[in-house]
Nucleic acid binder design. Structure first.
Lengths: 165, 165, 165, 165
DNA sequence: CATGAATGAGTTTTCATTCAT
DNA sequence: TATGAATGAAAACTCATTCAT
């Protein structure tokens, strides 16, 4: 907390006017980032276009967002792997978070229905689609690979190969 | 450290006879687990069999190992997402760890050469192959899905679809 | 101070326009309450009536006051048992506060002179007269006994028995 | 806590090996003192002697104890007037603390039965008997009166006058 | 005059590490 | 070599007070 206060250029006590607790600060920051990302995805979303097109759109936007906001990515990843984050993950998968993942889930539902996607449980499709991306973001941030537009396209295609029939 | 000592049934001070520092303990434990896994993979490894067969073997064995040792999975995942772990990851990708990933890298090299796999950078192939698995292990541990043999087969096939030409 | 400001419906800073310091606020509030009580006692006071009558009057009025103003009682008691209050108590007993306790002290002086009361030091008479009352007020506030008029009468008589010859 | 640690001649952290929390420390210290006092009262207790004799014994012993342990008195009084202490007081009166007050309650029960004492609720008798004593202890500690054996005798007699028929 | 966000010294609590036995 | 009580630096949190608006 001392370090955060210093970087924010305020006194320690000031933080506590805005966040009841360190835990609250951590959780609310996570939620804020998540909302930001969801907003980005929603804003340019192409309702009514074919499943594949929407899928490509989402993967590309997510990667772009994280590439331009690497600290957001680092934070969210660390959060999800901490005791704090487990419950969030749980809520996500159980669909409690409602509107958020509807975009993704909608694509999967539709894709399965139209027999475009493999008939696998949604958590599995989810992992096939996003697992690689998350890994690659880390490599990108650490400087091991450079995710340019061409590579992103290849990766997205590979992920699509994983989930499509 | 107090908690670890208690669970180990020794005095706190005793830990420090075996591990100079908490950090050392954490890192050495990680390396021990990693070695264990590498040994498992090596032991039953089918040198000389076709690329796909070896790939399936590795994914299956890893999932099996983690399913029977969920605490190992949790620990390694948490470690890799902590400041401790970043350096390990870096070493891994830069090939410093030598022998370990040679199995995997060997498959990828061979697969690319034989034009079986997509011609993508190895970190990308790596993520396509293992990213989904890691995600799904978490879901499995949290009880959201049950990774039985059938599902594992489907998932492995999907991962193969992602990396194969 | 924040809590007080909120309950008073003013901003925190406003308090400091009326009370230089938290300590000042605490002490002045105590004195205000004390003055209020003294005023009540003085107002209906029966100068010139027999010692016993006056004694009964005081005990009764004090109990009535505290029963109708339990928060005043709680506050004064807590104040007297805090480091703040010790000095007040000291002043009281040393007679510095002048007029206030004169009523009580007058009764004791007179009573001793007329050989109605035991010839004990005034602090002792004071304790015999008021000690029980204070204890019982606490029990009343906590709901362990209900101090109705009948019980108050019995208690006052008992206190009188304690100090009378 | 820092001050306590310093006075105890230990490091701050050491306190927490013996008391989980500041609150626990405060409460346990109170209970220890209470037990000590109860032990003193029990030890020399004259079972089977007349009610009055036992009453005198208790008042005398209590005063003696507090006179020789003024800090104990200060601590217990402050504790009882703090939010911590209210619950203790509640338990006491509701008889939950069992054996402790049985000595006192026993005297009151017997005294009422034998028609020696006034037929008042026990909390009232309790206050009449101990209220003055508590007040006087404070005066004694502050140096306003000196409770010598003679004065103690007079006070005890006065308290007896208050509760006896 | 009133406001309330900002302050930061002070308090409680934690926990990796040490060291006398 | 094992023990675990003691350590104290560092962390989280509180709250009376200030001061620019």
């Amino acid at each position: 907390m001392a370090e955060i206060a210093e970087m924010a250029g305020v006194a320690i006590g000031t933080i506590y006017r805005y966040f009841e607790t360190k835990n609250v600060l951590i959780t609310e920051l996570y939620q804020e980032l998540e909302n930001k990302i969801m907003k980005v995805l929603h804003d340019g979303y192409l309702l009514g276009t074919p499943v594949q097109k929407r899928f490509f759109y989402i993967i590309r936007e997510l990667l772009r967002y994280f590439i331009t906001h690497p600290t957001h990515f680092r934070y969210m990843e660390q959060y999800c792997n901490s005791p704090y984050g487990l419950s969030v993950h749980r809520d996500r998968l159980l669909g409690k978070l409602g509107t958020h993942n509807n975009i993704l889930m909608g694509i999967f539902d539709e894709g399965i229905e139209q027999q475009i996607l493999k008939e696998l449980p949604k958590p599995v499709l989810c992992s096939l689609a996003f697992g690689p991306m998350i890994h690659l973001m880390r490599d990108h941030i650490l400087g091991f690979i450079i995710l340019d537009e061409v590579l992103i396209k290849h990766i997205t295609e590979a992920c699509w190969d994983a989930i499509k029939r």
